[in-house]
């Protein structure tokens, strides 16, 4: 499957493992429940390990383990569910997470600009057929007023 990563279309090399599925070789992501249950086994996984979070998960509890993950997948069950925008900002700004943060679920062209500002850098699009045209979404705006993950000072301090 193709995804967008760092504003480019790339082939995805991660497997999202169901809680019941057997461990597989290669890069895998697991749910928080599975991580909490099997973290000792998973910590020895030879390839990349990623964690999937939903907006209902207790983000702060995961913080001590962040170094174990090279990918964090944030779930957007509906694109109107904005909880994980806050998760992304906290992961970047407060908890210093430097790995890949990926948005998964109902991800449309029209959310890419905001999501990027919040620190999300890869995207599994809801409609992979339009992935090419979705790239335009990154350039919807050239500026933003706020302090964001990408812009650590507000517009007025940078430019006015």
């Amino acid at each position: 499957m193709q995804i967008i990563k760092d504003k480019e279309i790339v082939e995805d090399n991660w497997l999202h493992l169901d809680d019941e599925a057997e461990l597989a070789a290669g890069n895998i992501t697991v749910s928080l429940a599975r991580w909490q249950e099997q973290h000792e086994t998973l910590a020895n996984h030879e390839s990349g390990l990623g964690l999937r979070l939903t907006g209902a998960d207790p983000l702060e509890e995961v913080v001590p383990d962040l170094d174990s993950f090279s990918l964090i997948v944030l779930d957007f069950p509906a694109f109107t569910d904005g909880r994980c925008y806050s998760f992304a900002r906290l992961l970047r700004d407060r908890f210093g997470y430097k790995g890949e943060i990926r948005a998964q679920g109902d991800i449309l062209h029209d959310q890419l600009f905001y999501m990027t500002q919040c620190g999300i850098n890869s995207f599994e699009m809801a409609n992979p057929n339009r992935i090419e045209s979705a790239l335009a979404g990154f350039d919807d705006f050239t500026e933003s007023y706020q302090t964001t993950v990408l812009k650590p000072a507000p517009l007025y301090r940078r430019n006015r």
């Binding site: 694109f79 109107t80 569910d81 904005g82 925008y85 806050s86 900002r89 600009f113 905001y114 999501m115 500002q117 919040c118 705006f141 933003s144 007023y145 706020q146 964001t148 507000p154 517009l155 007025y156």
Partner: peptide
């Protein structure tokens, strides 16, 4: 107004 306009974190409250 400026702070809230296109605030990237709070568009889907």
């Amino acid at each position: 107004r400026q702070w809230s306009t296109f605030h990237p974190e709070f568009a889907y409250l």
